[in-house]
């Protein structure tokens, strides 16, 4: 089944490359080399995996409590904004890295959490669908970043919509120095494991899953449904904010308009594919990161459009969901 999905995706991909008049074989070889085959490529993949994994955990957490937070891009943005803000404003203080890095990351996480809390409060107080508010807030955050990058924080020497760089002390330490992979991926994996522990080994996590499985049954069982949902939503928002901070502190070392090339939406697909299970998210997000890094490479070599990766990923997910639904239809059974 997964093979069928991958084959379908690959076929579409090949078709696109062929239409662009390139040799698919050569293109795939470069893509593979630039994502898994070389140290540099592998490092790129790990760097791509970090935000993907964190964002997928965000979406999974919201789904686990029966909500759908799809504003991860916005949360990445505001996380990046506050991380940059902290980095820039603390630059004169000259703090050492071991103080600077945690501050920047914590700032990003807090910004993401606070941002999603807007949607959470609207949901809790007036029942406004968080799907809608989070996606609207994406646009607000994107415009905010655009404003900062072109306005007050703009680095006039760069000639693009990017801000001044944050101090070197705020940069994440490197994991693979040669390829430029930062340690964020370790952090992300640790977060995934912790999230698993929270959900499956603690009582608050049990309450979250219960709320997600059946909010009314949970309510009757005396669980504060709204409270649990708010906590999970905020926690998730924090993780996406953290992803934004990691992108700033680990990859770009500054804020820029294209901070997230749609990680939020890719994260949805990752989470759906992994059925919202935090541990399964790790390999799935790695696989998707390979796709993203590979498509980056295709973009450079054969002019493969950046957005095509969405198509391929979404296609994989839809094919798998359809096949699963087909199978579920055959094995309906009751004790």
């Amino acid at each position: 089944m997964y093979v069928a999905a991958l084959a379908a995706a690959l076929a579409i991909n090949t078709l696109v490359i062929a239409i662009l008049r390139h040799d698919p074989w050569v293109a795939y070889k470069t893509a593979l080399n630039d994502s898994l085959g070389s140290i540099g490529g592998f490092a790129q993949t790990l760097n791509r995996m970090t935000p993907l994994l964190l964002v997928a955990i965000t979406f999974s957490l919201s789904r686990q409590v029966g909500l759908a937070n799809i504003g991860m891009d916005g949360q990445i943005y505001v996380g990046g904004v506050l991380a940059t803000g902290i980095g820039l404003s603390l630059a004169p203080a000259g703090l050492p890295a071991w103080q600077m890095v945690p501050l920047v990351l914590a700032g990003g996480a807090m910004a993401g959490a606070a941002f999603v809390l807007i949607a959470g409060v609207l949901r809790a107080a007036w029942g406004v669908s968080e799907i809608f508010t989070t996606v609207m807030l994406n646009f607000v955050a994107a415009y905010l970043v655009e404003f900062l990058c072109t306005g007050p924080w703009n680095d006039p020497t760069a000639g693009e919509a990017i801000t001044y760089p944050i101090p070197r002390t705020a940069a994440l330490p490197m994991l693979i120095t040669r390829g430029g992979a930062h340690t964020g991926v370790l952090l992300a994996c640790a977060v995934a494991v912790l999230t698993w522990g929270l959900l499956y080994r603690t009582v608050p996590g049990y309450e979250m899953r219960a709320v997600g499985a059946n909010a009314r049954a949970a309510l009757i069982a005396g669980i504060g449904v709204t409270r649990v949902q708010l906590i999970a939503l905020t926690l998730g928002g924090g993780l996406s904010g953290l992803a934004g901070a990691i992108e700033v502190a680990g990859v770009h070392e500054r804020l820029l308009v294209g901070l997230t090339p749609g990680y939020g939406f890719m994260g949805i697909l990752v989470a759906v594919l992994a059925r919202y299970h935090p541990l399964v998210l790790i390999p799935v997000s790695f696989a998707f990161a390979v796709l993203v890094a590979g498509s980056d490479s295709l973009q450079r070599t054969v002019g493969f459009p950046a957005s095509a990766v969405f198509l391929v990923q979404a296609l994989v997910v839809i094919v798998i969901m359809v096949v699963e639904a087909l199978r579920a239809r055959r094995e309906r059974y009751v004790i």
Partner: peptide, 11 residues
């Protein structure tokens, strides 16, 4: 499915 189709349509 709707979300996946939304992403698919955009891509």
């Amino acid at each position: 499915i709707g979300l996946a189709l939304f992403i698919l349509g955009t891509g």
